[in-house]
Design a protein around this nucleic acid. Structure first.
Lengths: 201, 201
DNA sequence: AAGTGGTTTAACCAAATGGTTAAACTTAAT
DNA sequence: ATTAAGTTTAACCATTTGGTTAAACCACTT
């Protein structure tokens, strides 16, 4: 087949992602991960010594990907409004690809906040670039200033929640004639853009 | 002491809420629930025959409370804008009191959607009152109409997500000088109100 | 062909899991 | 005081859990 065709270690990590994201550290079963990867249970312990080590590998990967995404904002040549629209596009694309990730991260932090506090220190991309980007724009473009932190919170709410709550919306939105896996996602994205546009004339 | 002083069954249910909301159906341990309630493990099975039965009691209670809350909107004497402001107040108060509830419900639905689909049928308060309320307001008050379903999604995002992500925000917002358990919650509530106000002049 | 190092497996193990049982306790009615 | 009903407990049980071990397998080099 291909030069690698996905090594066993990769298969293990992929299966671990799937199971840990669904059930969390406590709820996940090693046997379940082994079955998902299509291998023997002892092989998990060969590649990752313990359940905790395997979980760490999954969680660290998710955390890095998540924070890396949250700090990407388009280049300075564009006006702030356009950059924010692109930011919304990126968020929706990211959450479409990894719908379980933010739930997973938030849930595990809520169960074990100390662990998160240790790990967040070693992350390169810690603080949001949105806040300073907005502050610059207040000066460079003629925009009535507002609290950039609160705006960031609201923007993340608008983008992240529909995916977090998608298990609910998949059922509930049907009663209002919307299909989540069809048009609903794109319509919500557009409504988010409309929602934040008023802040920039 | 008091005439009841909380019966054993109530203590069990209270402990079960705590543990199930934190770890979910799969992650929760009966021994953990028993310890939290300060009783013997066999007593759990005396009052609720199995883990599933006990879980159902907790989940059904949460579901009912949640949907009951989501469908409360102030009386028709007030203008729509004022009613929405009150709706935001209610949501923030509700989520402050039960910060884990929406996470719990959404997570369990995502693991077992079929179960939810069965249960949602027997709920009295199924569909949002927000949508028809808004549609009436478009006519009765002179408001430029917009899609009420999308607005509902955005509004719920703005209110629910800060609490869902509060484990994250408790750590991250400090870097921007905000304290979640102090001022941040109220400031976010105000920013949500500002955010939706523009739709109503 | 024999050795070498990494990979995979079947067979285990001790501990923890959800659940059961029968006996003991408590309380109120007779 | 005895009965009867509900409540609580300690001692079990079978299964599942995360984890280990030693042997087998495989792809190389020598």
């Amino acid at each position: 087949m291909g030069s690698k065709d996905s090594t066993t270690e990769e298969k293990v990590l992929e299966a671990a992602k799937e199971v840990f994201m669904k059930y969390g550290l406590y709820g996940a079963r090693m046997q379940d991960i082994a079955d998902t990867a299509g291998i023997n249970k002892a092989l998990l312990h060969y590649y990752f010594r313990s359940k905790e080590k395997l979980f760490d590998a999954v969680f660290d990967g998710a955390l890095e990907k998540y924070f890396a995404q949250m700090t990407v904002i388009g280049d300075k040549s564009m006006p702030i409004k356009e950059r924010l629209m692109q930011y919304v596009d990126n968020m929706f694309e990211f959450f479409s690809e990894y719908p379980q990730m933010s739930m997973f991260i938030i849930k595990e932090i809520s169960i074990n906040p100390e662990m998160f506090y240790e790990k967040v220190k070693s992350l390169k991309t810690q603080k949001s670039l949105l806040v300073p980007t907005l502050q610059e724009a207040f000066i460079n473009e003629k925009i009535e200033p507002f609290d950039p932190v609160l705006f960031m919170v609201n923007l993340h709410s608008l983008c992240a929640y529909p995916f977090l709550a998608s298990p609910l919306y998949k059922v509930m939105l049907k009663k209002h004639g919307y299909d989540w896996d069809g048009e609903a996602k794109d319509k919500i994205k557009q409504s988010v853009k409309d929602f934040i546009s008023f802040k920039f004339q």
